[in-house]
Amino acid sequence: MDRRRLTHALASDELPAYALGALDADESAALVEHLAECPFCQADQHRLDELVGLLGTAVPQTSPPPSLREQVLAQAAIEANAGPTGERPTLRLLPGWARAALAAAAALVLILTGAVAVLLYNQWQIRQELDTLRAEQREIASILAQSAWWAPVTAEASQSQPVVGRLYLEEGQAGVLVIDGLSPLGPGQVYQIWLIRADNTRVSAGVFTVDASRRATVLLHAPGTWSAYQGMGITVEPGPAGSPGPTGPRVAGCSLADWQPGGL
């Protein structure tokens, strides 16, 4: 991405506005890059963050309704009993006889339709794929133009540059991941995107590869809304479909707690 690099003096000037969440998206991104490299600004930022927290005391004090306490503690108790895996939906397999019947039916359908049907299907599939791609491009353009939120995507320590992209979020569940700086992968490998729920479970949000210029643009649809997720991670997985759960090394990610206001 073509973005100005901040000098230390400029970055230091912008830290108060950053702590207040008052920077535009591009200004924030440039400052985040500087912060990743500057321990002085990091220390200053921690102090300003604390100051901004203190500002929250300067409001009229009102007690919450007593029922809220019970509600919070009851919910915490439920979650503690359920454990981290308790909320995961269980996959139920069909009984063996039903699976066998389905397999036989599928084989029969395939034989009956024959080679002509397969060819027609292929043509139809190509048209469908083209239509899907066009629709995707339109949706990506629309999200990038209207996105209300974005978060910087930072690489894990072994990567050469700290910021390797941005995640643009639309209100609701659509988003666009713009990658600029991930290494091209070997054959048979893909990058897989994981959305991280509050309980630390991961949901796959698709796979992608980068081109020779280390770039990619990926359309995402979060199950539920974005507020259900605390972060996003990218791992390297076997292609072409990726894995049911993360198995490879995490190469980049972002915290959705660090959402910044503003679109492009």
Binding site: H46, R47, D49, E50, V52, G53, L54, G56, T57, A257
Partner: peptide, 13 residues
């Protein structure tokens, strides 16, 4: 990163 109170208020804000 600092005391819990201001941190909680920052999260709240």
């Amino acid at each position: 990163r600092g005391p819990l109170g201001p941190w909680l208020l920052r999260v709240t804000r």
